[in-house]
Simulated scan of single mutants.
Amino acid sequence: MRIGFLSSHGGSGMRAVLEAVERGELDAQGVLCISNNSSAPALEVARRFGLHTLHLSARTFPDPAALDAAMLAAFRAAEADTVVLSGYMKALGPAVLNTYAGRLLNVHPSLLPKYGGRGMYGDLVHAAVLAAGESESGATVHAVEDEIDGGPVLLQSRVEVLPGDTVESLRARVQATEGPLLVAALRAL
């Protein structure tokens, strides 16, 4: 498996996958990390693991179709057969979605379909879970389709919401499950 990554920020999911590859727990190779944020820490993480990195965004490609085509060309040039979103905060274009259908994964910090969709990311998800008085939360790995967080659920991890939980404490427990969950989903592919 040759994995390309998309990340806007820290890339913790990407790091977990690359560490699993390094430990021999996943028969794969990371080949490329694309970010829409030229200062994303994920780019440095990717470089440390020997991946090629690119900054592709609306700034470098103002036309969405051109950005979609550039992203697809980069993944093809890297011979990526699977693409993982690791905290990528932008919608994907139809060329990437169609080419990688069924091999395009995202990890989301909730038990989808709850707390997914536009505007539901990071600490906003954890705050919404706490505000709703949920008894459990977790993470979901899902196939990426054109609806944000709307693709089929592949795997989920569950964590109990504890009395006195804060956004920070809940985030820490959910994040601790995301990497192993993503690795398990990639193994299943």
Score class of each variant (00 low, 15 high):
residue 160 E to Y: 03
residue 131 A to L: 12
residue 163 P to S: 14
residue 146 D to N: 11
residue 189 L to K: 03
residue 132 A to T: 10
residue 25 E to S: 04
residue 117 G to V: 07
residue 76 R to P: 05
residue 129 V to T: 07
residue 48 R to M: 11
residue 134 E to P: 05
residue 32 L to M: 09
residue 17 V to A: 01
residue 38 S to D: 14
residue 110 S to V: 13
residue 160 E to I: 07
residue 48 R to G: 15
residue 141 V to N: 00
residue 78 A to Y: 14
residue 50 G to M: 10
residue 159 V to W: 09
residue 95 A to N: 12
residue 102 G to R: 01
residue 30 G to C: 08
residue 27 D to N: 08
residue 128 A to G: 15
residue 164 G to R: 04
residue 78 A to P: 07
residue 112 L to F: 03
residue 66 A to L: 10
residue 85 L to M: 09
residue 183 V to R: 00
residue 121 Y to L: 12
residue 104 L to M: 09
residue 185 A to N: 12
residue 92 L to M: 11
residue 116 G to D: 11
residue 79 E to S: 14
residue 16 A to T: 01
residue 105 L to R: 03
residue 178 E to H: 01
residue 150 G to K: 07
residue 82 T to A: 10
residue 132 A to M: 06
residue 160 E to H: 06
residue 125 V to F: 05
residue 77 A to C: 08
residue 129 V to C: 04
residue 139 A to E: 00
residue 132 A to P: 03
residue 44 E to C: 07
residue 86 S to P: 10
residue 17 V to I: 07
residue 170 L to A: 11
residue 72 L to Q: 10
residue 118 R to E: 15
residue 19 E to H: 00
residue 146 D to P: 14
residue 26 L to W: 00
residue 69 A to V: 08
residue 102 G to H: 01
residue 2 R to I: 06
residue 150 G to H: 08
residue 61 F to M: 13
residue 11 G to I: 00
residue 178 E to L: 02
residue 33 C to N: 09
residue 10 G to C: 06
residue 75 F to Q: 07
residue 181 L to Q: 01
residue 135 S to N: 12
residue 19 E to N: 01
residue 115 Y to R: 12
residue 185 A to I: 11
residue 77 A to Q: 14
residue 91 A to R: 10
residue 8 S to H: 03
residue 106 N to D: 04
residue 173 R to L: 13
residue 126 H to V: 11
residue 47 R to W: 08
residue 98 N to G: 15
residue 73 A to L: 08
residue 153 V to K: 02
residue 64 P to D: 04
residue 142 H to Y: 07
residue 21 V to F: 01
residue 167 V to F: 06
residue 30 G to D: 13
residue 111 L to K: 09
residue 65 A to F: 06
residue 33 C to Y: 05
residue 60 T to V: 10
residue 68 D to V: 12
residue 52 H to N: 10
residue 173 R to Y: 07
residue 116 G to Y: 08
residue 160 E to M: 10
residue 188 A to H: 11
residue 76 R to L: 15
residue 93 G to P: 02
residue 131 A to K: 13
residue 73 A to P: 05
residue 35 S to N: 11
residue 92 L to K: 03
residue 32 L to W: 03
residue 127 A to W: 05
residue 11 G to C: 02
residue 150 G to S: 09
residue 109 P to V: 14
residue 62 P to H: 06
residue 36 N to Y: 06
residue 49 F to N: 10
residue 81 D to I: 01
residue 98 N to K: 05
residue 92 L to P: 08
residue 25 E to W: 02
residue 79 E to M: 09
residue 180 P to Q: 12
residue 13 G to V: 00
residue 17 V to P: 00
residue 54 L to R: 14
residue 138 G to I: 13
residue 117 G to K: 04
residue 179 G to R: 01
residue 156 Q to V: 06
residue 58 A to D: 09
residue 64 P to W: 03
residue 77 A to Y: 09
residue 5 F to N: 01
residue 172 A to S: 14
residue 79 E to P: 03
residue 75 F to V: 11
residue 18 L to S: 01
residue 130 L to E: 04
residue 166 T to N: 08
